[in-house]
C-alpha cells in the first residue's frame, strides 16, 4: 500500500507542477503583450542574452562546421561523394546544428543566469518588494526576458549559421583541398530559403523555452542559497531537455508541411 501511496503522491506532484508551469506560461505570455512595455529593460536583456552570447555561440558554430566537414568527407569518400561536403555542411548547420547548438549553449548560459538572478531576488524578498512598489514582477522581470530571448535567438542563429558554414569552408579548402569557388558555389546553389527559415522558427521557440524555464525556476525558488542553486540546475536541465524534445516535434511538423 505504501508503494502505491508514494506513486500516487508522485503523480499528483507532477500534475501540480505541470499545472503551475502552464499558469506561469499563460501569465508570462499575457504580460509580454499587455501594456505597459519597458523598452529599456528589453534592450538591456537583449544585450545580456544576445550580444553577450555571441562569443560562445560563434565558437561552437565554428568548430561544429569544421568537424562536420571532416566527418562528412570521411563518410563521403566511401561512396565517392566527396563533392557533397559543402552542401551537407550547409544543410546540417542551418536546419539542425545551428539552432540546436545555439539553443543549448544559450540555455546553459542564460537560463542559469536568469534563474540565479530571479532566485536571489526571490529569497531576498526583492520580488515581494516589487509588488509593494506597484510593479508587477511578471511585467518588470519576466516579460522583458522572454521578449528579448525570443528576438535574440533567431539573430544568434543567423550568426551561428554563417560562422558554421565558414568553419566548414575553412576546413574544406585548407585541409581537405576543395576549390574555394566551387565550395562556395555548391553551398549557395544548394541552400534554400526554407532551410534557413525553419531553423529560425525553431530558434525563436528555443528562446522562449530558455527564458521561461529560467524565470519559472528562479521565480519559484525558495530556501536560500541552496534553493537558488537547485533552481539554477533545474532551469538548465529542463530547458535543455525541452529544447531537444521541442526540436523533434517542430522538425516533424515543419517536415510534414
Amino acid at each position: 500500500m505504501n508503494f502505491i501511496a508514494a506513486l500516487g503522491r508522485f503523480v499528483l506532484e507532477i500534475c501540480a507542477e505541470i499545472g503551475r508551469l502552464c499558469v506561469f506560461i499563460k501569465d508570462s505570455v499575457w504580460h509580454c503583450f499587455a501594456p505597459p512595455v519597458y523598452p529599456r529593460l528589453i534592450f538591456d536583456q537583449m544585450v545580456r542574452i544576445g550580444y553577450n552570447s555571441l562569443p560562445v555561440v560563434g565558437l561552437t558554430a565554428f568548430f561544429t562546421g569544421g568537424v562536420l566537414a571532416l566527418q562528412i568527407y570521411i563518410g563521403g569518400t566511401r561512396f565517392n561523394a566527396e563533392s557533397l561536403v559543402s552542401s551537407i555542411v550547409a544543410l546540417g548547420i542551418t536546419r539542425e546544428l545551428g539552432p540546436v547548438l545555439a539553443g543549448l549553449m544559450v540555455a546553459g548560459r542564460v537560463s542559469a543566469a536568469i534563474a540565479a538572478e530571479l532566485g536571489t531576488m526571490r529569497v531576498t524578498e526583492q520580488i515581494d518588494a516589487l509588488a509593494t512598489l506597484s510593479t508587477n514582477p511578471f511585467k518588470y522581470l519576466v516579460a522583458p526576458r522572454v521578449i528579448a530571448a525570443v528576438l535574440c535567438l533567431p539573430l544568434l542563429v543567423v550568426v551561428a549559421d554563417t560562422i558554421g558554414i565558414m568553419g566548414g569552408y575553412i576546413v574544406g579548402t585548407k585541409s581537405l583541398g576543395f576549390n574555394s569557388t566551387v565550395y562556395i558555389k555548391n553551398t549557395v546553389d544548394f541552400l534554400e530559403f526554407d532551410d534557413i527559415f525553419s531553423g529560425l522558427v525553431k530558434s525563436a521557440v528555443f528562446g522562449f523555452i530558455i527564458a521561461v524555464m529560467g524565470c519559472y525556476h528562479g521565480y519559484n525558488s525558495r530556501g536560500g542559497a541552496q534553493g537558488v542553486g537547485r533552481a539554477t540546475t533545474n532551469a538548465v536541465v529542463s530547458a535543455s531537455i525541452l529544447i531537444l524534445s521541442a526540436n523533434y516535434v517542430l522538425t516533424s511538423l515543419l517536415f510534414s508541411s
Binding site: T124, E125, D128, A129, L133, S134, N136
Partner: peptide, 19 residues
C-alpha cells in the same frame, strides 16, 4: 491587490533593496 498596494509602503526586515 496592486491597486491596494499603491497606497502602501513597506520596509522589509532585510531591506530587500534591488541590487
Amino acid at each position: 491587490q496592486s491597486e491596494m498596494l499603491q497606497h502602501f509602503g513597506m520596509l522589509f526586515q532585510g531591506a530587500a533593496l534591488f541590487d
